[in-house]
């Protein structure tokens, strides 16, 4: 048995007795960022493939959530900073080695572009909407003409944003739970799934709902596979990784992870969506809310549990 004591009484706030420097802001932002990336990905994809008419909610209505989600996420990120008046320092440099720098610049690009995307649909969504100035009309016409270019830019940025929410964590070698390369794809797939859930929930078009339900079922199956793979990877890893797996296999996060995320957030909606496609009458909001709830819980668990894991020396 080895016991380690810090006898000098190191009690640095938020560091001891266990690390808890990141609170609710980060998981909330990771959730909203993933959701925004998911919706934008599908909107851009169906615009590029020329299916705007068949997928009106995906391309149009759902995207109105994106700027709101991104702005709320950015506010959460700002609130998390402890030296807030210096936040502009993010934009005086580009640091390719730092995932957070990548994220800051991606958000700087994707937020205004998503607002422009939504603005081109204002006239269709709000009857009688008129731009106040003439140049906005000219700009709108030009953007609508180049919609596919904008969609290409957004689809690339959406994938970067979706993956980055995972890489932000997986780049931290010091936290064994986060330091797995599968976290990037897992967060991307989870973000796409929450985006699809919102579209399924919002759409009134039967054909669109069917397509998005099929996509979502596939995404949930991939997610279940990645989660299993992640836990197997931990169990096959070094001592710190095995200790990490124990957090979910009998440790303090066992119930929240398996019950709230895996069963309620993945398996349940998977079954409900499959039954719905088979013709059973199921309120569409139920699987959608479960997926969104599961996605949020998943990010809270990963951020919180990751800070419990550390090197042993």
């Amino acid at each position: 048995m080895t016991e380690e004591l810090l006898t000098s009484g190191r009690m640095n706030p938020n560091i001891d007795p266990y690390l808890n420097i990141w609170h609710w802001h980060i998981p909330v932002y990771l959730f909203l960022g993933g959701l925004a990336a998911g919706i934008l990905f599908f909107a851009a994809y169906y615009t590029i493939t020329g299916k705007e008419k068949q997928m009106p909610t995906t391309v149009k209505w759902a995207t109105f959530i994106v700027p709101a989600a991104l702005i709320i996420g950015l506010i959460a990120l700002f609130l998390d900073l402890k030296h807030q008046m210096y936040f502009w320092r993010l934009y005086t440099t580009v640091r390719l080695e730092s995932p957070m720098s990548w994220g800051a610049w991606t958000l700087m690009l994707i937020t205004p572009l998503s607002i422009i995307w939504v603005a081109t649909y204002m006239k269709e969504v709000v009857p009688g909407w008129q731009w106040k100035w003439k140049f906005l009309d000219t700009a709108e016409t030009w953007i609508i003409k180049n919609k596919k270019g904008l969609a290409w830019a957004l689809i690339v940025l959406a994938v970067i944003l979706g993956i980055y929410t995972g890489i932000l964590l997986s780049a931290f070698n010091a936290r064994p739970l986060w330091n797995v390369s599968i976290l990037g794809p897992l967060f991307l797939v989870s973000g796409l799934s929450t985006g699809a859930a919102v579209i399924i929930w919002m759409t009134k078009n039967h054909h669109e709902r069917k397509i998005m339900s099929r996509i979502d079922i596939l995404l949930i199956i991939i997610e279940l596979f990645l989660v299993t793979h992640m836990i197997m990877g931990f169990l096959a890893g070094s001592e710190v990784k095995i200790a990490t797996a124990q957090l979910f296999l009998g440790g303090q996060f066992t119930v929240s992870f398996w019950v709230f995320f895996v069963i309620l957030g993945l398996v349940f909606p998977l079954v409900l969506e499959t039954l719905e496609l088979r013709g059973f009458k199921i309120p569409v909001a139920v699987p959608a809310i479960l997926i969104l709830f599961g996605g949020l819980v998943f990010r809270f668990i990963i951020v919180e549990a990751g800070q419990f894991t550390r090197y042993l020396y």
Binding site: W22, K82, Q84, F87, R89, Q307
Partner: peptide, 11 residues
Amino acid sequence: ECIGCGACIQS
């Protein structure tokens, strides 16, 4: 230059 984001503390 520090914004207090905590990334270094996590790392």
